[in-house]
């Protein structure tokens, strides 16, 4: 009952593998002007899961402020990635290092094809997924929007399929919502759009077609006002989810009046407009003269 009071619309948490999230917005930690801005943006976004990357310690510079000091791990789950890995072996090693560092089974697997597009390499991605699943990881797998590949990744034991909306950091939004809708029909796993989001409407549009969540980084971190954009993304995610759950009306070509069509006052005499015979003849079939 208490749950109903808190959430009268009854939206359920998202279960991904052994983890559960009330927020369906997943946010990165890269590209912020500073860690303080990042922390504030995370709070504003109400995300419960943020991605992090693994890189070599700089031998010649003092460590400086550490990312982890700006993330409250009691409230936010860390999802380490294998970003920047262009082959299976490096991705596997990076995943193992992140598990040791964070003591987490979670990995956002990325096996990328090339530096210009950063599109996922499908064959390497599938191979690495199989291996990491074997090693006990909970694999959230970054992939293209190919529905059949999503099926193969699900069969390989991934816990979430994460199709790119468009290339990482491109801000083009979800370029092929049809493919993602098919993917949603083919896999039972959570589908989380990862990459390509530019602005709030991209998040809402993705959530409206029924994806389980959206992961983004650049769109907040590099916005003119990251905190305000974080709020916009939060609201868009929630709005899109509710619109999906509510069930949208079908699209129609013609109008469908919202106000009653009966009971209109007597209309003004029709003016005859030269060249408007087509309209005239169409309307002449409407005996009531009501505007419909």
């Amino acid at each position: 009952m208490a749950e109903t009071m808190q959430d009268p619309l009854g939206s359920t948490p998202l279960e991904v593998g052994s983890f559960s999230f009330r927020s369906r917005l997943f946010v990165g930690t890269g590209k912020y002007a500073d860690f303080e801005t990042m922390r504030a943006a995370h709070v504003e976004s109400r995300t419960e899961c943020v991605t992090v990357a693994l890189r070599r310690v700089n031998l010649d510079r003092d460590a400086g402020p550490a990312l982890l000091d700006y993330i409250d791990r009691s409230k936010v789950t860390l999802l380490p990635n294998t970003a920047g890995c262009f082959d299976v072996k490096t991705a596997l090693r990076t995943a193992r290092l992140s598990r040791e560092l964070l003591d987490t089974p979670l990995i956002k697997l990325e096996v990328l094809g090339d530096e210009k597009t950063l599109l996922p390499d499908p064959v390497g991605t599938l191979e690495a997924t199989r291996q990491l699943v074997k090693e006990g990881f909970e694999v959230w797998v970054y992939t293209s929007d190919d529905p059949r590949l999503g099926v193969r990744l699900a069969e390989a034991g991934a816990v979430a399929v994460m199709p790119a909306g468009s290339p990482i950091g491109s801000g083009q939004g979800v370029l092929n919502p049809h493919a993602i809708r098919i993917l949603l029909e083919l896999v039972e796993l959570p589908v989380i759009v990862d990459a390509g989001v530019g602005t709030a409407s991209d998040v809402a549009a993705a959530m409206e077609i029924g994806v389980d969540g959206v992961l983004l980084n650049t769109a907040i971190a590099c916005a003119g006002e990251p905190l305000r954009m974080a709020a916009a993304m939060r609201d868009a995610c929630s709005a899109g989810r509710n619109a999906y759950l509510a069930g949208r009306i079908p699209k129609r070509l013609y109008a469908n009046a919202s106000s009653p069509t009966d009971g209109m006052i007597a209309p003004a005499p029709r003016r005859s407009v030269p060249g408007s015979q087509r309209t005239e003849s169409a309307e002449s079939t409407d005996k009531t003269g009501a505007r419909t």
Binding site: A53, R55, V57
Partner: peptide, 10 residues
Amino acid sequence: VEVVTLVGGG
């Protein structure tokens, strides 16, 4: 030896 740490990423 590879020594890695966490950095910001997406």
